[in-house]
Amino acid sequence: RLTVMSLQESGLKVNQPASFAIRLNGAKGKIDAKVHSPSGAVEECHVSELEPDKYAVRFIPHENGVHTIDVKFNGSHVVGSPFKVRVGEP
């Protein structure tokens, strides 16, 4: 089962990169992540390998409000996905 680490749920800033990590815990497959902005825009997140069992997911929010992040592994949502994060002040 995958572990999502260091996902900041609030206090993110517009046009500043945000990232979190995913540990695969021995699982093999493909991570896919997309961020949905409050206006409905959908953007791919950048996924990069940090070490053999750990990946970083990076995105840049372009507007204030609550964004939804879909994180999928081999086509299925990971536990807790979709995640909600707040950009800007509430």
Rank of each mutant, 00 (worst) to 15 (best):
Q8I: 07
E43S: 06
G75M: 08
H77A: 11
S19L: 03
T68P: 05
T68Y: 11
F73S: 05
V79P: 11
Y55K: 14
H36A: 09
E63F: 04
F20N: 04
S39T: 05
A41T: 14
H62F: 08
N64K: 11
L50D: 15
R58P: 04
L24P: 01
Y55T: 12
N64M: 12
F59D: 00
F20H: 00
I31C: 11
V57H: 03
T68V: 09
I69R: 00
I60H: 05
I22M: 12
D53Y: 09
V35A: 07
S19C: 02
A21L: 14
F20V: 07
V35H: 04
P90V: 09
L50H: 07
E49K: 14
V78C: 06
V66S: 11
S10Q: 13
Q8T: 13
N74Q: 09
E44T: 08
F59W: 14
E49S: 10
N74S: 11
E44G: 09
S6A: 15
S6H: 14
I69G: 00
F73I: 13
V79R: 08
N25V: 05
D32E: 06
G26Q: 01
P17G: 09
D32Y: 05
Q8H: 08
A56H: 14
L7A: 02
V4P: 07
R1A: 01
S76I: 13
P61D: 00
V71L: 13
A18Y: 14
F59Q: 00
N64W: 04
D53Q: 05
K28D: 09
K72S: 07
V14Y: 01
K28N: 04
H62G: 13
R86F: 10
L50I: 11
V71I: 11
V4I: 15
Q16D: 05
S37P: 05
G75Q: 09
P90N: 15
T68I: 09
K30Y: 15
V4A: 01
H36V: 13
P38G: 01
S39N: 15
E89L: 11
H77G: 13
D70C: 06
E51D: 06
V87N: 01
M5S: 12
L24N: 05
H62Q: 08
K28V: 09
S39I: 04
R86D: 14
S81I: 00
I22Y: 00
P52S: 12
P90I: 07
G29D: 02
D53W: 03
K28Y: 01
K13M: 08
I69L: 11
N64H: 13
L12Y: 01
A41Y: 09
G65E: 05
G26E: 11
P61Q: 00
S6T: 15
K34P: 01
F20R: 00
L2D: 08
Y55M: 11
S37D: 04
V57N: 01
D32G: 05
Q16W: 06
G75W: 07
H67N: 13
I31S: 01
V4L: 15
G29F: 03
V79Y: 06
G29V: 02
H46V: 09
A56F: 14
T68E: 10
A18H: 05
G26H: 03
S76Q: 12
V42S: 07
V14G: 01
R86V: 11
V78K: 02
A41C: 06
D32W: 05
L50G: 08
R86M: 06
V79F: 03
K30C: 12
V57D: 00
Q16Y: 07
R58F: 10
L2P: 04
G26C: 04
L2Y: 07
A27Q: 08
A21S: 14
K30S: 06
T68R: 11
D53K: 08
S81N: 10
N25Y: 07
G75A: 12
G75H: 12
N25D: 03
K34W: 12
F59L: 04
K34S: 14
A18I: 06
I60N: 06
